[in-house]
């Protein structure tokens, strides 16, 4: 007897390349669960990834078209795909180093333009694949391989940044909140315009072993204890929210999607009815 979701995966290359207890596999699980619930044909999904552990979530395991691009450029490639194929479901799954670090500007401007992409940013606080270097989302004061005397930088609140940039849908969940995450992924897939979910995920190997969270279980317990809902966070001061993970939906708007506006302008210019 086989797992009912294996039909969405390339079975011949399973298990995934991720370390034991890694949250990337849970994100893949949640993603195919969302697709299964919505009954979306995986052949209509084009997933775009960058470089890093999280980019291995859809590529090569997900049975759909996949673009595995250069470091940080997943959103730039995805924008191109969406403009040419506006009817397809373009999904970007990449990590914090990829989308918040090197590709940070692409992310901000895709959110500002409100390009119809579904972006799942898997935030594991670290550049995991390359050996645990500090990333823009690494918490203050922790030890990584490039900050051996603790990190002097403050982390970027990436979901809040994307919400401020004007995305139509923004949420943050952790791998512990798996059912909420699946429901949120479904909402994001159905959103017209830029939909973004920051998925706080565990890296027990490159990050966890230096901060005392040595396995997936310890990490998920940490997420459970340190998560605060959006509603509750509004009653808390900035000092109280230090080190907490604010989970929930952060933004929802109904702005017109980028490719729709673009096509309208092109059509107006063709027919001579535009400005």
């Amino acid at each position: 007897m086989e797992h009912h979701l294996l039909k969405y995966l390339r079975e011949e290359i399973l298990p995934t390349t991720h370390c034991p207890g890694c949250g990337c596999g849970q994100v893949l699980n949640a993603f195919v669960n969302a697709i299964d619930t919505l009954r979306i044909d995986p052949r209509g999904i084009i997933s775009v990834t960058g470089i890093g552990c999280s980019s291995w979530i859809p590529s090569p395991y997900f049975k759909g078209d996949t673009l595995h691009t250069t470091h940080g450029r997943a959103i730039a490639f995805a924008t191109g795909v969406k403009v040419i194929r506006p009817d397809s479901n373009v999904v970007v799954i990449a990590g914090d180093g990829d989308l918040a670090g090197i590709g940070g500007n692409h992310l901000i401007h895709a959110a500002r333009r409100n390009v119809g992409l579904t972006v799942y940013l898997v935030n594991n606080y670290i550049y995991g694949m390359t050996g645990g270097q500090v990333s823009p989302t690494t918490p203050f004061g922790v030890v990584t391989s490039t900050t051996p005397y603790t990190n002097a930088e403050y982390p970027l609140k990436i979901a809040e940044l994307v919400a401020a940039a004007g995305a139509n849908y923004v949420a943050r969940w952790t791998t512990y909140h798996i059912r909420k995450l699946i429901a949120s992924m479904e909402e994001a897939l159905q959103t017209k315009g830029f939909a973004f979910i920051e998925i706080v995920s565990q890296c027990p190997v490159a990050y966890g072993r230096r901060v005392g969270l040595r396995d997936g279980v310890a990490f998920m317990e940490y997420f459970k204890e340190n998560s605060v809902s959006v509603r509750k966070s509004k009653t808390m001061s900035e000092e109280e929210l230090e080190g907490k993970i604010v989970v929930g939906r952060l933004a929802r708007r109904e702005r017109v999607e980028f490719t729709e506006s673009l096509r309208k302008i092109i059509e107006e210019q063709r027919t001579g009815t535009g400005a």
């Binding site: 797992h3 009912h4 298990p15 995934t16 699980n29 798996i178």
Partner: peptide
Amino acid sequence: LYCPDFAIF
């Protein structure tokens, strides 16, 4: 739902 490797169902 929690299994990262589709190994339990």
